[in-house]
Design a binder for these strands. Structure first.
Lengths: 349, 349
DNA sequence: CTTTGGCACTCGATTCTACCGAGTGCCAAC
DNA sequence: GTTGGCACTCGGTAGAATCGAGTGCCAAAG
């Protein structure tokens, strides 16, 4: 079509149809062979109607424009991050095999248990579906309200503060006092804490009694440990599935080590996923996410919401040459199922 | 010493002093070079006062007896699992560097938070100390008694059952009813549940009301989900630290994959550690633990107890040629600190 | 002016060979 | 029983030769 313009280097990054199909062919082939791809195989691929020679000359352009790279003279071409980016941006969204679709429906029809269990199992599911490492992130309860708090006496000087939130999460904190508290004092404190904190969020500032008696001290102590929760973690949880796939999917011990090292740090994974989501991306390729150790990785994310509110995300981590179509489809389908699962009729907690 | 008997093949597996020191030298050298070790380097090592020729002839014996193996003719010797076993059985227990000792004390002096957090951080500590993957297992609350149960209403048909145990653990279960329960009904059920279950364990059979009103139904339902907890998992928790070390410490993608695959399955890790503990071992080498995919691994375990009761264990996973002395020392020291930490004055929960 | 087949050239990968040397097993001497 | 000496083995490495996939360029064809 816009052939006449082919000579003009298009700064907007859009390619004419022929370059596009060549780039696509290169990416597609490199994804499944992991080898540099040469002009002949591109020329023979569907959607490319020109001779190897023409392909070659187009490839030098694509290389100059940064979509392809040559490992060394007289080798085939390999896509750059930019090349992959173009590829995924122009990917007509694929669809999962019906066997897999079935597997997912089956899974969500049969899962039981608490949210945490469901999320954990979901991450396993996702990694099995794709053969990549999966991440399932549940955002924190920063704006969940407190449904109940209870102070339970462990022994005279140790109590356990158990708080239940409207999102179904439960957290415990241990409270230590430097005096012996009677059972009566503890349950009185528990009663008052309940009255005090009911329907508040962790961000609400509450008026604590300033008296110095045992009950008041327990209350102050309890409120303080509870509110201390906030700054450290936001209560996000992350479930990682199929980390063993890291070993099959990356080559080079060093890469494997680095990637595993990142996955070990849950906080990092949460922020990574969050960052990508915030950028409005669904795929971050190579250096796009800014984590140097993951520069040979691509990360796919798909948001999950509950009642219209963003509530987390599912993610996949693979090499930049991952099978985007399948992986995107899987992440999408699973995130939709999750959204439906938690939005819908079933147990919320 | 028992030199005169050297010719007699000792079926009990005890070696005369010279063979022992040769075997030890081979193992020690192979551990830090990862190479087959030859007669000359053994002969030059401390504790071995004989010539290479003598070493060689002893080595053929050691090989025949199954302590050493030869990768191929005219290569050095490599220890077999049996060789490593002898080595660790006769290891005079080492001691950690004082810098490390300090690091551990420091850690336990400063660590805060709930048990889970402490255990998780402990596993990180242990893996940092040793450069191996660490496992920290906390046994289940099968004989902990219930301190409190509370049924919290989420919405009309969903309640959350929150149970607090004497070991400081808290578990939640969601309860779904097929009728709309009022707040009053829920709190009445909660009250009765408390009375019913207080001081029982998950194994105690309790008499539930057989009435068909809402409160009784809630109670039956709650008791049932709570007691259903038992069979699936015993409530063990496992924290794995430093899985990225797997990639540095094993060679061969396939091994790395297999090991990571095992580590992914928490249940497997728990039983692995438990099995080894049950066998009364502190190290399981190669095939001793019976997990085929881990046949090139050694696993070190050290029990942790609270108030004299076994309460879990710490473990390390490395290659069969791991640095046993250091790793054993680290696991030992950390398990002791952990035992002291939870047995002692500090927070129990 | 674009496309194409032809062709010389490049350069990593593979294969082959020679060779080195660590290490062994054996034996005769101590 | 221990030791030095010696012939032999065999994996690992280095270098040379070769292969071949793939390129860049050019001249002819459309």
């Amino acid at each position: 079509m816009a052939r006449r313009n082919a000579k003009i280097i298009d700064p907007s990054g859009d390619l004419d149809a022929r370059k596009a199909s060549i780039l696509e062919a290169v990416v597609a082939e490199h994804i499944d062979t992991a080898q540099p791809v040469g002009s002949t195989s591109v020329a023979h691929s569907r959607d490319v109607k020109v001779s190897p020679a023409t392909v070659r000359s187009e490839m030098v352009t694509l290389e100059r424009e940064g979509y392809l790279a040559q490992p060394h003279t007289s080798a085939g071409r390999v896509p750059t991050d930019k090349g992959y980016r173009y590829f995924v941006d122009h990917l007509k969204s694929g669809v999962m095999s019906s066997a897999q679709q079935h597997q997912v429906s089956e899974f969500f029809a049969n899962v039981r248990g608490e949210v945490e269990d469901v999320l954990e199992q979901t991450s396993t599911l996702l990694s099995h579906l794709t053969n990549y490492t999966s991440m399932v992130v549940a955002s924190g309860h920063s704006h969940a309200t407190i449904l109940s708090v209870q102070l339970v006496s462990m022994d005279a000087r140790h109590q356990l503060l158990v708080s239940v939130f409207s999102d179904g999460s439960v957290i415990k904190h241990s409270v230590t006092s430097d005096f012996d508290a009677t059972h009566e004092e503890v349950s009185e404190a528990s009663r008052q804490l309940n009255a005090l904190l009911l329907a508040t969020t962790l961000e609400t500032r509450v008026q604590v009694p300033s008296r110095t008696d045992h009950v008041a001290t327990l209350i102050r102590e309890s409120v303080s440990v509870l509110h201390a929760e906030k700054p450290t973690t936001d209560g996000e949880q992350v479930f990682i599935g199929g980390s063993s796939h890291v070993a099959e999917v990356f080559d080079g011990v060093e890469t494997v080590r680095k990637v595993l090292g990142i996955l070990e740090q849950e906080l990092l994974v949460v922020t990574l996923v969050q960052d990508i989501l915030d950028q409005g991306l669904s795929v971050a390729i190579g250096s796009e996410h800014g984590y140097e150790p993951l520069s040979s990785c691509a990360v796919i994310v798909a948001p999950v919401s509950i009642d219209g509110e963003p509530a987390g995300a599912v993610g996949l981590l693979g090499p930049t040459r991952m099978k985007y179509r399948e992986a995107l489809a899987a992440a999408g389908v699973v995130s939709q199922h999750l959204t439906r699962h938690f939005g819908g009729e079933d147990d919320l907690a």
